[in-house]
Design a protein around this nucleic acid. Structure first.
Lengths: 324, 324
DNA sequence: TTGAAAGCGCTACCAA
DNA sequence: TTGGTAGCGCTTTCAA
């Protein structure tokens, strides 16, 4: 029966007579024989499956189109290469214990924006290849990383607002993202863009904002309130939009708003949301392909892939009201 | 070393001394021992992973929010139960050969709307549990099936249009979906709704429509052209909207349009799209939970789960122009 | 060209 | 309470 496998799988130096081969094929068909991929994976220590480590577990996002675009990119790559894609919660737990590989995956696409000291170490010394998304160059594990050009994105946004005449531009980020690498990169990008335009950094304060408890009211009452806000995410921008409506603050007349990630969702809100764009699908596609090529080459690689941002101007930005 | 496993996994009737146990734990920590889940799965013939069989492989959809909602539902269930979710292309190939189980999955969520004779047979006699989405009661394999109430959805749409004064209402479906079970169910629902309102079925003809080659122009030129169209999907509705714009046909003044699936995307198009809704996320969540409970109970079950449709009236429907 | 055996890491079972 | 052994289905290697 060893011969059977040779025939069905790939035989190395094993040769089989034509007649025997035919018999084997026939019997296999009659028995509706189906090779067990789990056993094969076990034996070969190769599962042809990529693990997706994501933080939005149980919820990939209602409001924004981020995850759709992301998955489109990943899947177009995995399916071409005939790799399976597994979305799995346990890996996060594992990584917090300092271990990543549990045998199920040939490689990992790490999309969790926050990583602890333990998980960073686990990623760095992982036996299976890991590629990180949303990881700016610099700090963090020494693996291939994909990120948009946050500096460029923030500069485009600040320039757009400054060109419109805004002087006091705030940046909004929630407490969670403030602690992520990309969060810090965006804050830094915001700071340098503001300074490059000779704007006052103090008046455009950075708000640490709990999504469920927006402080727009108190901010709008303050003397030197910002006339424009740039947010870390689409979702925050939308929270601001609806909160502004509650408070009777008119967007964009009283307040301009720019979001981050420019998906179709930006067209569903009123006013339509001006937003910084990044090529999410392309990034996900490329990252997956890089991961797969590392797996197949069985060699490591480490590089930062930076993608340009754009600015999609819609309806939520305008000249500041004259009284401001 | 057999004892080691007993400690780390779950021991049945095996007892271990406290001292030995402590030693084992310590050594395991020192060696950074990580149980191999692949081996465990192989041994136990249980992977704690669900396979997702989907047709939109390589592309989960740009325009519609269907897949996002669907995955939200599936993932909220899998993550609660600590199941992995694998999106895998090979299963479709397998099913066409009449086999489904290749050892990797404990159960299958079948979301492919079209199934061949072979795959239907494979689903029916599968050794692992299968739950089907978008499968109306009636024909097809004898497994639990989840579907919206297409009759109700079409009735709501037809009633809405008839109430507005429309007499000639067409139903649009593409060649592919026409051959799916749900496609036929919607056509049937459309037919009975039209007849229930005493409308002429012949004038409201069913268009078999290639998405890439819309025939709206010739349809609009015909004598008894429909004043309203109901489409099988969101996507088709949007194609019609843009085609109508090209032709100078005004929606909703010259033509009312109703889509199927009412996601946020309906708000992004102009005019905003009136659409039949179904609780996609809830259905996906429930279907996944049913699948998991069958897996864990290790018993089969077969039932049809029907979910009500709604109608979200937006801007693409209005009274027919008086000249019609 | 064919057959036989070993072993991937794990768990279950039976003996001591 | 412990240790030993068998075997999940597959591939690889070596012997006939």
């Amino acid at each position: 029966m060893a011969v059977s496998k040779v025939l069905h799988g790939k035989g190395a130096n094993v040769r089989v007579g034509a007649e025997t081969a035919e018999t084997i094929r026939r019997v296999a068909r009659e028995l509706r024989y189906q090779p067990n991929r789990l056993a094969r994976s076990f034996r070969e220590q190769k599962t042809h499956t990529i693990g997706l480590v994501f933080s939005h577990f149980g919820r990939i996002g209602d409001l924004d189109g981020y995850f759709s675009a992301f998955l489109n990119g990943v899947m177009s790559a995995t399916f071409q290469s005939e790799y399976g894609l597994t979305i799995c919660p346990n890996l996060v737990k594992l990584s917090n214990k300092g271990v990543l590989n549990d045998g199920r995956f040939d490689g990992l696409l790490w999309c969790k924006p926050d990583y602890t000291v333990q998980s960073a170490e686990a990623i760095g010394k992982s036996e299976i290849p890991v590629v990180m998304m949303h990881a700016p160059a610099g700090e963090g594990p020494d693996v291939p990383r994909f990120c948009c050009d946050n500096d460029l994105g923030l500069r485009l946004a600040v320039d757009h607002l400054a060109d419109l005449g805004h002087r006091r531009i705030g940046f909004v980020i929630d407490a969670f993202n403030e602690s992520t690498a990309e969060g810090r990169a965006r804050i830094e990008g915001y700071r340098s863009a503001i300074q490059a335009r000779g704007l006052d950094l103090d008046s455009g304060q950075i708000l640490s904002w709990q999504i469920d408890r927006p402080e727009l009211a108190s901010m709008m009452r303050s003397e030197h309130r910002p006339t424009a806000l740039i947010t870390f995410s689409e979702r925050q921008a939308v929270t601001i939009l609806s909160e502004a409506k509650n408070l009777g603050v008119s967007v964009p007349d009283d307040l301009s708003v720019i979001g981050f990630d420019s998906t179709t969702f930006c067209d569903t809100v009123r006013p339509r949301l001006t937003a910084i764009s990044q090529p999410i699908e392309q990034m996900a596609h490329d990252a997956t392909n890089v991961l797969i090529s590392i797996i197949e080459a069985e060699q490591s690689a480490s590089r930062s892939f930076i993608y340009p941002c754009g600015l999609d101007i819609r309806e939520s930005t305008a000249r500041p009201a004259s009284r401001c």
